[in-house]
């Protein structure tokens, strides 16, 4: 396996060092600040991508770290970065927030993101940006999440697989299928 490079990838030394940080945090939560510093921005960005404004993102990010600290005792190192565990908490907390407070799920993307996705779909259409966005709206939540992680957040399949608790190959296959689905939605329109 030769996973794509991303900040989600750690060397063995980094992983080992992180395990020590976690051990210290388990004994004394004030040591959690090392992990907090390391991941705050990434978790905040993950949340901000999915919510409507900065203050909502700040509140949810804070809640995620509170949950992480409250549950650090039950964390077990499974050979993947601590970030995976944090992202799973983050994902769940964000969804709970939608449900609990009846908040809208936000999907953010740039023109460049859409361009990258369009290139992969390989369907030539006029007004392709608008049509592609309309096609994305046809996807269910799981499918949207894969497109969001791969194309809008530019995560590696390795990272997606860790966050969604699936194999890397499964993440690839599922994302490929969603791209194919988008293609099938767009082809009739482009003709």
């Amino acid at each position: 396996m030769n996973p794509e490079k991303s900040e989600h990838h750690f060397t063995v030394h980094q992983l080992s060092s992180e395990v020590n940080d976690i051990k210290k945090a388990k004994k004394d939560l004030t040591h959690f600040n090392v992990l907090y510093d390391r991941y705050y921005v990434r978790i905040f960005q993950f949340v901000y991508q999915r919510v409507q404004n900065e203050s909502q993102a700040a509140d949810i990010t804070s809640e995620i770290f509170i949950k992480a600290m409250e549950n650090i005792g039950s964390y077990k190192f499974m050979g993947v970065p601590f970030a995976s565990w944090l992202f799973r908490i983050a994902r769940n907390t964000v969804y709970l927030e939608y449900k609990k407070n009846n908040k809208l799920r936000q999907v953010n993307f740039t023109s460049e993101d859409i361009q990258n996705l369009t290139n992969d779909i390989e369907v030539v259409t006029i007004n392709k940006t608008e049509l592609l966005v309309d096609a994305i709206k046809e996807l269910n939540e799981k499918e949207t999440e894969l497109i969001e992680m791969k194309y809008f957040e530019k995560r590696s399949y390795f990272e997606i697989s860790n966050i969604l608790n699936m194999t890397e190959n499964n993440a690839k296959v599922k994302t490929f299928r969603v791209v194919q689905k988008l293609k099938s939605i767009l082809i009739p329109i482009s003709k």
């Binding site: 960005q45 901000y48 936000q106 999907v107 953010n108 859409i114 709206k137 269910n140 949207t144």
Partner: peptide, 14 residues
């Protein structure tokens, strides 16, 4: 998809 808001080119936070 219901209950989803799609937002294009929202300024990124530094």
């Amino acid at each position: 998809m219901n209950h989803t808001n799609y937002k294009k080119n929202r300024p990124a936070l530094s």
